[in-house]
Amino acid sequence: MTGLELLAVALGMRHGVDPDHLTAIDGLSRVRPSPLNGILFALGHGGIVTLLAFPAAALLQRVNLEALHLPTLLLLLVAGLNLYRLLRPEERTPGRLPLLHPLLLGLLFGLGFETASQLSVLALSAQLSPLRLGLFFTLGMLLVDGVDGFLASRLQNLARDSRRAKRASRLLGWVVVAVALLLALAELGGVDLGAIAFPLGLGLFLLLVSLRLYALRPA
């Protein structure tokens, strides 16, 4: 890979650690556990970024999609469903809602949130072909979001038979609700959380890894 392609991968990994990504994937995994959640989310999101890198998509970039607050509404939906499951664990949550498909979630997040890492990779479109740019950027996201989705899904599966894993799952659920509400309210209130986005996302990822290790320990 060239230096620019490595940079695209690095930006994809950085983008994959954004707290809105991890919150959506972890929250989705508590409603409909699947090891493919993170992979499908990254593919959907990467597909949109690839599309936006084409000059013909300039018109789409001019549309004020942020005014629709699509990712914000989806974060509120994820928070609401996880809160419902936390308060009523004995009842089945509606995990088959079309909006909760990880591929569609990734598409909508790619259209709605313009983060620094996403804008940075689009700036490379003048030096890399859109397809190569999208491929390497998506690869970076897959490395992070794919692992996150796998770990979150495995934790939920362990929670079916292990009290330790069930406690870990509930803690993750409360963290997902809190972070999703924080991000959604900040977006609606016009508060820029860019300065804390990376440490918040990295902390959420490390928490998931820690909870997974905790769940695997013998009682």
Rank of each mutant, 00 (worst) to 15 (best):
L207E: 13
P199I: 00
A159Y: 05
F205K: 10
F109L: 04
A168D: 05
L133M: 06
A186Y: 05
M141L: 11
R163A: 15
G134K: 05
L108C: 06
L193I: 03
A168I: 08
F150K: 06
L108Y: 00
L172F: 04
G110Y: 03
R96A: 15
A195R: 15
H101C: 07
L86W: 14
G194T: 06
L202H: 02
L122R: 01
L133C: 04
L202Y: 05
A116D: 11
D161C: 12
L103G: 15
G95I: 02
R167M: 14
L172W: 03
V175K: 02
S153N: 11
L207K: 14
S169E: 13
S169L: 12
L207S: 14
F205W: 14
P98M: 11
G134F: 07
Q118M: 15
S120D: 13
L104I: 14
K166S: 15
V191E: 12
L99C: 14
W174Q: 01
V176M: 03
S169K: 02
D145S: 12
L139C: 06
D145Y: 01
L105A: 12
G110R: 07
Q118I: 12
S153R: 01
L124E: 07
H101P: 02
G203A: 10
Q156P: 08
L183M: 08
T93H: 10
F136N: 03
N82L: 04
A195H: 09
D192Q: 07
L143F: 10
G112R: 06
A178D: 01
L182Y: 02
A165E: 09
L87M: 08
V147I: 12
L81I: 10
L206E: 02
W174G: 08
N82G: 05
S120I: 02
L207I: 13
